[in-house]
Design a protein around this nucleic acid. Sequence first.
RNA 1: GGCGCCAUGGCCAAGUGGUAAGGCAUAGGUCUGCAACACCUUGAUCACCAGUUCAAAUCUGGUUGGCGCCUCCA
Length: 469
Amino acid sequence: MKIYNTMSKRKEEFVPLEPGKVKMYVCGPTVYNFIHIGNARPYVVFDTMRRYLEYKGYEVQYIQNFTDVDDKIINRANEENVTMEALANKYIEEVLKDAEGLNVKKATHHPRVTEEMPQIIEMITTLMDKGFAYEKQGTVYFNTDAFADYGKLSHKNLEDLEAGARVDVDSLKEHTSDFVLWKPNKPGEPKWESPWGSGRPGWHIECSAMAKRYLGETIDIHAGGEDLIFPHHENEVAQSECANGTTFAKYWMHNGFINVDNQKMSKSKGNFFLLRDIVESFPYEVVRFFILSGHYRMPINFSDELVKSAEASLTRIKTAVKNLQFKLENASCEKISDEELKLVDEAKKFRADFEESMDDDLNTADAVTAIFEFVKFANINVTDSSSKEFAEKIKSEINLLGEVLGLNFEQDTKNENNEDAKKIEELIAKRQDARKAKDFGAADKIRNELQEMGVVLEDTSQGVRWSYK
RNA sequence: GGCGCCAUGGCCAAGUGGUAAGGCAUAGGUCUGCAACACCUUGAUCACCAGUUCAAAUCUGGUUGGCGCCUCCA
């Protein structure tokens, strides 16, 4: 498999540090609100990466943190008159709900910054001891000048950074690009004791410390949104490599943004969409499919119209799978024929195509194409007279590819209950009687009635198939 | 100012040296009592200019347009 590595700016063959195992760290959200559609992208993309690696037989250790101490959380907590802890807990729960809705697998660990203080303080101490950090009035800074490789991930150099810097209010720093490792608390703010006085860690150090604790000094893949390249990930590299004296991450993966009207979402522009609001109109799985229908490094635009189009595409696949299910349930012949066995063999190419696309830097957009082609193949070759075994084999192969993408093609997002089903079956039987009697007026009336209940009928030579629209 | 990304049919989107995948939408047709599902058919020379090459959407240079990072941010 090839992965585009931000560090080298090229696709590289993926070779894990340890055969058969992959250590992945994905930067998680700061929990002070529900996640927005943009936050959903790294969740979906890197979960898909994980699923594909697992599909290929790797054992994946997947770590995603929650930043539960930060100015934004403190401010929001003050506004709502609750403790920072309560606010963070609330949103961690909500984020997990959204993640579950998106069918994102749980991380191996979801560490929280507030529970990692000893490790964080230890790492800062090491940086101080090794001369990569300095303390001024209770604030500890990382000395970027001491790390010769500073800028190697974001491909910036210190001179350019100095030149392009905005007016710096923080006069305690020795260099513009130095950043905070530990800062003193203001009165009333949450605080932890440290060798430099009470306070809390800077944003960057937490990820370095958590990655080290749960995955070790060197990890395989570090991932996140492209905006994190600088300064966040650049600073992580500096901290971890200076403290540990070894390479931090072998591969750096960064997802592109989800834009609205081709522009970055922002609250001030008023083009900001929470995932919660979107799933009022579309199922979570449609959002997941929408995200996977473009390459993860390219920007994608978000709009109702585009998601609607994605929904129609997904429906095509799901309809095909439903049809296969109906056919196998009503098949008159159990055993697969020689002719069908040949077709099963022929269908292997779709899986091969799928893998080829996924192997090419997780090209899910192209991988989805293989599924569509598989669907067409199924539509043409699995007929009403196919054997049950054949229909079953084809269906499970398509479903398998869906699972790798975290999509369950058989899942029905609409509510159904048995009482409804019974009533629907009765109406269908009545309609069938009417049709037999060539009373099409009555038959159509029943069909319309069902349509109003949100039920769509399909007459096949195997019988009537119904589903919720 | 520094660094970087993008520009493919109505919309979305792969392809990155050998004469343009796929999906959505549209139109016509087949199937159907009608419909639905499905199938068939229908459409682009790849922003522009110049260059390299037997050959370029695909490489190089330039132009135009859009966007991002450099400040919290997925």
